[in-house]
């Protein structure tokens, strides 16, 4: 009897520690100079349930910002509100201000088609179209009318596949189905597809969670290369990955942004005790 009590008691302790105050303020360096995207007082609701509470943060140009946190903390929801993918969820409502280059993304006159051409997205599960590798990459340029001639289109496809370091592996079979590739190759194909329209920002929603370690390493290498030309926001549940690829790390907890700091600092000297508890593996 005693033993059982002590176990539940310990659980209650942890729970108490993890609760977040309603007036929780994000600690660390949320704001940057010359930001690419600025988010101010963002609240996201699913019907009446609030998934994101009052998040304010900047994303600097050509930086990789990682968003980490326990499952259900709202990091994916937040990421998906950055290119309005949440519009497809009917019950979802976004409040606050999300701007890119000073332009409000939720302004009524803004066209989501244009927005998503500027903010690309890579999803958790590799989702190439059931078409050829070539058509997968050429799809974006085609619908946005970016290539005037077939030669231009060929060039865009080749460049995108090269940037996604997939060209050498697929150049002989561009016209075979994209779904016939391995998981890691499929995910790189999705990245190539996203960068084919030269977006300014790329959102990645746990891009490696369905991949083996070798494929993961390749994608991580790729993210580093891409950060020279693109601004990248990546959601990951792997702290090692965040530590390896990102410049800054944002820690989310129960829908609140707890801490944003340079990655090194987050993993060595976290400011907030919740961040510390999470990265040291006390829960997750």
């Amino acid at each position: 009897m005693n033993a059982i009590n002590s176990v539940t008691g310990a659980k209650a302790d942890v729970k108490q520690n993890l609760e977040v105050a309603d007036n929780q303020v994000t600690v660390g360096s949320c704001f940057t100079e010359a930001p690419k995207m600025t988010m101010r007082n963002v609240n996201v609701f699913y019907d009446d349930k609030q998934a994101i509470h009052d998040v304010s943060v900047d994303i600097a140009k050509h930086e990789v910002i990682a968003m980490i946190g326990p499952s259900g903390c709202g990091k994916s929801t937040f990421l998906r509100s950055l290119n309005r993918m949440n519009d497809t969820v009917e019950s979802c409502r976004v409040e606050g201000e999300i701007c890119m280059d000073g332009e409000n993304l939720y302004a009524p006159k803004l066209d989501v088609v244009e927005l998503r051409a500027r903010v690309g997205m890579v999803f958790q599960k590799p989702n190439p179209f059931p078409k050829s590798i070539y058509d997968n990459v050429a799809y974006g340029p085609k619908i946005h009318g970016l290539a005037d001639t077939r030669v231009d289109l060929d060039e865009i496809v080749e460049n995108s596949l090269r940037k996604a370091s997939l060209w050498e592996e697929v150049k002989e079979r561009l016209h075979q189905s994209g779904t016939g590739l391995s998981g890691g190759q499929q995910q790189r194909l999705c990245i190539a597809r996203a960068i084919a329209v030269s977006p300014e920002v790329i959102l990645m929603d746990e891009p490696c969670s369905a991949l083996d370690p070798i494929a993961t390493a390749k994608i991580e290498e790729l993210i580093e290369e891409l950060s020279q030309n693109f601004t990248i926001a990546i959601v990951t549940h792997s702290m090692q990955q965040a530590a390896r690829v990102s410049h800054r790390t944002a820690y989310f907890h129960l829908g609140r942004l707890i801490e944003v700091n340079p990655t090194e600092q987050v993993f060595t000297m976290p400011e907030h005790e919740l961040t510390e508890a999470y990265i040291t593996g006390r829960f997750g």
């Binding site: 088609v113 244009e114 690309g120 989702n127 190439p128 179209f129 059931p130 619908i143 999705c190």
Partner: peptide, 12 residues
Amino acid sequence: SIREAALGMGAS
């Protein structure tokens, strides 16, 4: 996932 992929590419 196919719908998301297309919408994410900026397809209407």
